[in-house]
Structures are given as structure tokens and as C-alpha cells.
Amino acid sequence: MSGTIRRPNKRKLKADINVVPYIDVMLVLLIIFMVTAPLLTLGVDVDLPKSNAKSTNTTSDPVVVQVDERGNLFLTVRAGKKEAVTAETLSTKVSAMVKQNDKDKLQVYIAGDGRANYQPVMDAMNILQKAGVEKVSLISQPEKGKQ
């Protein structure tokens, strides 16, 4: 009696994965992301400057605020010496110049170091705006060979 016993109702295991529900879920998520993606852009439209900028003609000596790569501020007034200033000193000196001169005739330039972070340059612009300067220009050097 050493024979094998067969079971007639033994079911064969199914080794397939039903992927239809996964495809349905994937398509629903795809539609949701396609609808919500345009709504997530919270950026601000920026009109970037053109690369062929021309130099400006100045009739009077401008006020130049320089920002070095460490964020230190320097002030040059009417082709004089460059002097290191703090934010408070810069604000008081420039506001005094604004009161003495016509707002439209006072030319103020910011020369930011190319290796400097953007924040110190923005801080200098905010200081000048609070001092009463309406127009601030940025100084750059032309690329070599494109003058």
C-alpha cells in the first residue's frame, strides 16, 4: 500500500497579477496631476534685461554704491574716494543728497560683485529706496569682445 493518492479536486494556483486596477488608479492620478499642475505655478513674471545693453551718458558725477562679495558697502560720491559705510550711514548720506538735489537729476548706481550673494545687493537697493532715491541703476562690465 505504498501508492500515491490523487485528489481529483485540486486547483491549480494562479500566478498572474491582475494589473487592471493599477492601470485605473494610475490614469486617475495622471488626470489629477495634469489638472492641478498648472495651478501650482506661483512664480512671478520677470522681464529679463537684454544682453545688448548700451552705456548711459551722464551729465553729472553719479553716486556709486559698491557691494563686495562679503556684503560690505562702499560709497563713492562725485568721483571722490571710495569709503566704507554701514547701512545707517549710507541711508543718512544718500537722503541728505536727495534733499539737496532734484530727485530726477540724482543718479545712483549700484556695483555688485559678481561673486556676491543677491541679498546684499537687494538690501542696498532697499536702503536707497527708503532714503528717497526713485531710480537706481546697476553697473555691469561688458563681456570681452562684445563692446
Rank of each mutant, 00 (worst) to 15 (best):
D104A: 13
K50R: 11
N72T: 10
A116H: 02
N126C: 05
G112Y: 03
N9K: 10
I32N: 00
L73T: 02
K50D: 12
A111E: 12
Q100E: 15
A37Y: 08
N9G: 09
K105H: 07
T86P: 00
G71Y: 04
Q119I: 10
L90R: 04
P120Y: 05
I110K: 05
L106C: 04
V67I: 08
V46C: 03
R115E: 15
K93M: 05
R6H: 13
N72Y: 10
T56V: 15
S91N: 10
K81S: 14
G71A: 02
K14Q: 11
K105Q: 10
Q107N: 11
K12P: 07
E134R: 14
V35Y: 06
Q100N: 13
R7I: 06
K93I: 03
V98W: 04
F74R: 09
T86L: 00
T86M: 00
K81G: 08
I17G: 01
N18T: 03
L42G: 13
A124Y: 02
K93E: 13
I23S: 08
V64P: 03
D16S: 15
D16N: 12
D102I: 04
R6A: 10
K103Y: 07
M26L: 14
T4A: 12
P62S: 05
P38R: 00
V108C: 05
L75I: 02
T76K: 09
K10W: 09
I31W: 05
N126S: 15
P21W: 02
V28G: 00
D123C: 05
V46N: 08
